[in-house]
């Protein structure tokens, strides 16, 4: 439709993401999609879009963009110190950009991934039912790659509602990203841990290692010893905590491999995945075992927060 933003600096890793392609996992294709689905949905709803529209996922550093045409944007997720023409800009809030306005990010203050939604959505390549960028297959999003300087971002359609700035998610409904407790349900193979191992899984503190990306995070901390014969491969899900032979757990994230044969000792619940998505190498985290009922309550409370934006 209309070219609204021009990329001056792309940032470390900025990709187009939506809610992913869950149907493609049967073909071995990573489900993909925004790592922090809550922030992604909130950004769209603040901008007056359907929650499944494409947004820009900005990793660790934000991009520098200039408005080619006036538009309304919303920035959610990690606090990367967003600025419009050098002035601090509010997050979780609709912001109006006039032609020539410059959106920049001062630096990371909390979290790892920020989301930028544009009223009217983002025009992107669709692949297997989703606009999410799959870097391995080089499909989806902006020509299957991350943003680079000179790229032009266009809206997918005319904004359906008049652009009104100031629409926002109230402060107390925003995620508490500083609390790194990941609520989890014991996994199918938790019995392969001995009593000490299970105690460590749900008691020790782990740290996100440098091997952490959209596929998953290797976790430093105590090694978890598993026993039993090798498993035959089975389908995996985001949030699964798998333990390979060496005992160093891996938390699977949005671009996870679709199948594997390592024991899954826990699965992080859907309501904690936005917290997991904001972790960066060096961050500490704990797993806290919860019931399915508690997971349901947490999920409903996030849904209720988003409902206030509709």
């Amino acid at each position: 439709m209309t070219t609204v933003l021009r990329v001056i600096e792309p940032g470390l890793l900025t990709t187009v993401q939506d809610l992913g392609r869950p149907h493609a996992i049967a073909a071995g294709v990573q489900p993909g999609g925004a790592m922090d689905r809550f922030a992604h949905r909130a950004a769209n709803l603040v901008a007056g879009n359907p929650e499944g529209d494409a947004t820009l996922e900005c990793t660790l550093t934000g991009p520098q963009v200039v408005a080619e045409h006036s538009c309304l944007v919303a920035i959610t997720g990690a606090d990367l110190d967003p600025r419009v023409n050098g002035q601090a800009a509010p997050m979780w809030t609709g912001i109006f950009l006039g032609q020539g306005d410059r959106l920049t990010f001062g630096g990371r203050r909390a979290g790892g991934r920020a989301y930028i939604a544009i009223a009217g959505g983002i025009e992107a390549d669709r692949w297997l039912g989703s606009a999410s960028t799959n870097l391995m297959a080089a499909r989806g999003g902006l020509h299957g790659r991350n943003l680079k300087a000179g790229d032009q971002i266009s809206t997918a359609r005319e904004a359906t509602r008049p652009a009104v700035s100031g629409h926002h998610l109230i402060e107390r409904l925003r995620p508490q990203y500083f609390d790194h407790t990941l609520h989890a349900i014991a996994g199918p193979h938790v019995k392969r841990l001995d009593a000490q191992g299970r105690g460590l899984l749900f008691g020790a503190t782990f740290k996100v290692s440098r091997e952490a990306d959209r596929m998953g995070y290797r976790l430093d901390g105590p090694r978890l010893a598993t026993s039993g014969e090798e498993l035959l491969s089975f389908g995996l899900t985001a949030g699964a905590v798998q333990v390979p032979h060496g005992g160093q757990p891996i938390l699977l994230m949005a671009d996870h491999q679709t199948a594997g044969g390592y024991p899954v000792v826990a699965t992080v619940v859907s309501a904690s995945m936005p917290i997991a998505a904001q972790l960066v190498p060096g961050d500490e985290l704990d797993f806290k075992e919860v019931t399915l009922e508690r997971a349901r309550q947490m999920r409903l409370s996030l849904a209720a927060a988003l409902e206030t934006l509709r």
């Binding site: 349900i185 996994g187 199918p188 949030g239 699964a240 859907s270 997971a295 999920r299």
Partner: peptide, 17 residues
């Protein structure tokens, strides 16, 4: 039947190849 978090589960029919 084993839960895989709150939005998935693993239904195992057996363990042999």
């Amino acid at each position: 039947i084993h839960p895989l978090g709150d939005t998935a589960l693993l239904a195992e029919l057996g363990t042999r190849l």
